[in-house]
Amino acid sequence: MRPLGFSTGALAYGDFRCALRILAETDATAVELSALRQSELGPLVASLKELDLSQYAHISVHLPSAIEPDFESALLTLAREIPSEWLLVTHPDIIRSWRAWESLGSRVCIENMDKRKEVGQTARHLRRVFGQLPDATFCFDIGHAHQVDPTMGEAVLILEEFQDKLCQLHISEVNSESKHDPISLEAAMAFEVVATLIPENVPAILESKIPRGIDPVAQVTSEMELVDHLLSIPVEVVGD
């Protein structure tokens, strides 16, 4: 059974407590605690012991997506205060001191990037990253891969090469301005292309933006049901 849940940043930007309150009313079994801005990481780490996360079989922390160069050392210190069984989802372009990150071993979970970043979108780039961090794990962001290459050809390359490192999925639609949207039919069809390459027990974290004014619990439940369906469609092998 695949653990399935949401990113707190997608549910309530900059307010993980609010997001956790919404998720507590759903059947989510996975959560990603989001600290996308540098300033959010310290407060998140400081409050970890107070949070009730007992409903989740899978927990990860999304480290800041951009940092000041001199914050890297502090970030790594904070990361070590996070429970060691949680993944640390990381954008490869924030890493400068590869050796220091390597010591975090498999907890460093490298995410493939969207088209705004200079690096990290392709299998070729990721090969370089994992060459530097051989023990690091992999978070496959389907929305980023679809935005970079809507044919999903690059996604197939990435998944085939790094399947044994795959420890988490990010699922959403990423629009042309690199914002996360609810999943469209076109994106859903693209996800189906790679569904067969994703082991059924890899946790999936949704990043779909929940529109304001709509019951968030109902919206979260609906998006999770859609993703559960997309990732569990039996493969029909027709022709070649």
Binding site: S84, S106, T137
Partner: peptide, 9 residues
Amino acid sequence: TKRDKNPAQ
């Protein structure tokens, strides 16, 4: 997973 095999140092 790869994670299980390589605990952080």
